[in-house]
Nucleic acid binder design. Structure first.
Lengths: 341, 341
DNA sequence: TCCTCCCTTTTACGCGTGTAAAGATATGCG
DNA sequence: CGCATATCTTTACACGCGTAAAAGGGAGGA
């Protein structure tokens, strides 16, 4: 059945004989018109092909009902998971989410921000690239729209709400676990891409020094800061293992993707057996439990992070609280002991 | 430095003393105005905070420059990778991409389609849920917008362009490899979520029968068709292994995520050693090379798929070729031999 | 200096919908 | 059946910008 295509509300009004203002109210809320009228309209719609134009709809409203999200990489399951949760909660709140990925590029991140500004979104959630992010862009965004930083804060952009994981708590938890079960861990840091890289490393060092132990941090030559964490960790550790370094004890990786790469390298060097090198990660990547050996890690509370982020923007949006002191919500992680450590 | 916020082009015009039509032309193409004028404007912009409204901009044009994308799950790295490539190529073509994930839900898929329709996008790329997709929604989309199906075709929606992988070729290639190197494979199918599930299984059966061998297909009770492929495969295979079934020979999995789950189960049963069970996958999941043992698989040509999908919509958009016969482009895969088979 | 040519300004309308105001009509009740 | 009230129609303006047409202004050449 080929329904007749209607292009505007005006046209709809003409063809079904109901005034445009009434139609407008109907599409915003069918119950705002008399039941008999609503029936007449919905009956007519059976035969017709019409959808109100989303943007024309918002053009003349103060709130657009749109939320922008910027993430560094859609192909990183951590961000994909956060995004998924954000979309779910945003839908519950009646927001439409528009996501832009920066593909790891500061320029694309700026463009994404520009895009969201020009869309006049009600608010924006940004998981920033980190150190590479262009401060002017983020600052401009902050000045113009309700905004919340997610996952990684930005040094130099302190007056913005932030939601993320308590890296100090999480690293201490997994670190203490490793210590408790016998091995002072070496730390495999991620490429210095964002603030998490620093704060996790700092938490590790603090813990070690607190215990009177020597912190040992491995960091490869950051060859053009790469988001290919698995490959990065694999190559770095392979280099060490080949020279007999770090072949025993425990290795605490700044995130699971690194751990997966390290695990692979260790396995190839036959280091992961009984009494071999213990490896632990951070994040509870969806595939971590399927690794061999299954990866011991800490799980970030992604739903809580997503929910909090939405709550904070929503507050800013309704409260117009541009001048309130910035809020900072971090969540604790959960220790997940598997086989690798 | 706090730049003064300007809310409309009208306002901009008033404050910098340049007529709105000229500003309009400037923002569309700075070279369409005299160089001295362009300078005057860009100089003024240094002090001011203004971005033309994206949607108002498109409201009065025939083409909106927007492309819609619908994927089943942002947290499936295959779709995330496809999306990433689509975004890259779309940017090259000057399109702005708006992505909606259906989170595996037919209802959300329909809503996403509705959303894209109401946005008046120039075209839409849909990686459908598959059998669960609501045909009316997809059909409505097809009638109203240039559209291309990606990854999985929809039975019953045949007059739509399709871009994907040649499952027959890919399954035969990996299947023949397994046979050539010694083992007639058993097939672990994915939950019947989309057409790929069927066509890969069909390709397997065809190959086996052609070789005069008995096809053996494993399929768990599809407990509410699940997208948790790894867990699904793990549980199904664990059940078999526990009863001593399929513990040797070769297992061909319909995709890598299944293979990862199966691999994990096999490893726990000590089946993956020398002369043990051989396991192969399909897709070359980004983490497959980091599995232990590293997963033998076939790689889909994701960039080619993304590029072709964009080419097809672009053709439809410019050609208004709504009545041309539907085109169907499938790409060959590349055999990637690692350790698992 | 005058006259083109090019770019700009002015003016006006259009995109599809929200929304306010005033008048017309339908609904429900006594 | 008449009236008060809820709802609808009509009319008009607004949102932010594209764009066409006509008129204005400046730079360059003769």
């Amino acid at each position: 059945m080929r329904k007749a295509k209607i292009h505007s509300m005006e046209e709809l009004s003409a063809t079904i004989g109901i005034s445009r203002p009434t139609l407008s109210r109907y599409f915003q809320n069918p119950e705002s018109v008399r039941a008999s009228t609503a029936r007449k309209i919905s009956d007519a719609m059976e035969t017709l092909d019409y959808v109100p134009n989303f943007f024309a709809t918002r053009l003349n409203r103060k709130a657009t009902g749109m939320l922008g999200v910027v993430i560094p990489h859609a192909t990183d399951l951590f961000f994909a998971s956060v995004l998924e949760q954000i979309e779910i909660f945003a839908a519950e709140l009646g927001y439409t989410v528009f996501t832009q990925s920066s593909h790891g590029s500061p320029e694309l991140e700026s463009r994404a921000i520009e895009q969201l500004l020009s869309m006049n979104a009600d608010g924006v959630l940004v998981a920033p690239l980190g150190g590479q992010s262009r401060l002017e862009s983020l600052d401009r965004l902050r000045r113009n729209l309700p905004m919340v930083l997610v996952d990684s804060p930005i040094p130099g952009l302190d007056d913005v709400d932030f939601v993320g994981t308590d890296n100090r708590q999480s690293i201490r938890m997994i670190g203490e676990y490793l210590l408790r079960t016998g091995h002072p861990p070496t730390f495999l840091g991620m490429p210095r891409l964002n603030a998490n890289a620093d704060s996790r490393e700092a938490a590790y060092i603090e813990l070690m020094e607190e215990k009177g132990l020597e912190p040992v941090v491995i960091r490869g030559r950051s060859v053009g800061a790469s988001w290919h964490f698995e490959a990065y960790a694999h190559d770095v550790m392979e280099g060490h293992f080949a020279q007999g370094r770090h072949v025993s004890g425990a290795l605490l990786c700044a995130n699971d993707r690194l751990a997966i790469g390290a695990l692979r390298a260790a396995t190839r060097f036959g280091l992961t057996g009984e009494n071999g090198l213990r490896i632990a990660g951070h994040d509870d990547h969806p595939l971590s439990r399927f690794m061999t050996p299954a990866l011991t890690t800490v799980a970030q509370d992604i739903p809580a992070i997503a929910r909090a982020a939405l709550r904070l923007v929503a507050d800013q949006i309704k409260g117009d609280s541009h001048d309130l002191p910035p809020r900072r919500e971090t969540f604790a992680t959960r220790l997940i002991i598997r086989e690798s450590a």
